[in-house]
Amino acid sequence: MSLLELFIIALGLSMDAFAVSICKGLCMPQMNWKNAVIAGLYFGGFQAGMPVIGYLLGSQFKEAITSYDHWIAFGLLGIIGINMIKESFSKEELECSDCSLDPKNMLMLAIATSIDALAVGVTFAFLKVQIVPAVSFIGATTFSLSVAGIKVGNVFGSRFKSKAEFSGGIILIMMGAKILFQHLFEM
């Protein structure tokens, strides 16, 4: 997997955390860089950790399904992408009234925004991606976008939340299709 492909996947995965960070920034009366870094560490840490768990799980059974692993990668990324697009059109808004960075609240948000990264980790196992550099890159990208999301939310408000989710969904679907087509046309 090339660095560009990894960057595109990292962007797609980090869009949920970016959207939640916008929401957190929205309710902050004044921009606080310490809080932005704390949010970035939660979201970036979980976005880096979940693919490791997925990778370990995927590595356990990748030999048994090598002949159709590209279909699994396509399916997982497609489902995640479609779900993100669907959420971008949802009228249901995130609860933005809680501006605190309470560890329990942040833990729940970090897990919720990184579940899709678990499935991507399974895909990484099938594609034999070098996991340490990949998750480091995903974590750093998510950290950066989460910090930026706090700032964007504080300055501009919620108008970017649905666009971020929609874009992330499209990116993941396109990467899944690329993996599938690349495998089908290599044969």
Rank of each mutant, 00 (worst) to 15 (best):
S2G: 13
L6P: 00
L6D: 01
F7C: 02
I9N: 01
G12S: 11
G12N: 10
G12C: 08
A19E: 04
V20N: 04
I22T: 05
L26A: 05
C27G: 13
Q30Y: 01
N32C: 14
W33E: 13
I38A: 14
I38E: 12
A39R: 07
G40H: 11
Y42D: 13
Y42H: 13
G45Y: 14
Q47T: 13
A48H: 11
A48S: 11
G49K: 15
G54A: 15
Y68P: 02
W71T: 00
G81S: 10
I85H: 01
E87V: 07
E92Q: 09
L94Q: 06
E95C: 11
C96Y: 02
L101N: 10
P103W: 03
A112N: 12
A112E: 13
I115K: 04
L118M: 14
A119G: 04
G121K: 01
V122F: 12
A125N: 09
A125G: 13
F126N: 04
I131S: 01
A134E: 01
S136W: 09
S136H: 02
F137T: 11
I138Q: 02
I138E: 01
A140T: 10
T141K: 13
S144G: 14
S144K: 12
L145R: 06
K151F: 15
V152Q: 04
F156N: 00
R159I: 03
R159W: 09
F160P: 03
F160M: 06
F160E: 01
K163P: 01
K163S: 11
I170V: 15
I171R: 04
L172G: 07
L172V: 13
M174T: 12
M175V: 05
A177G: 09
A177L: 09
K178S: 00
L180V: 06
H183Y: 11
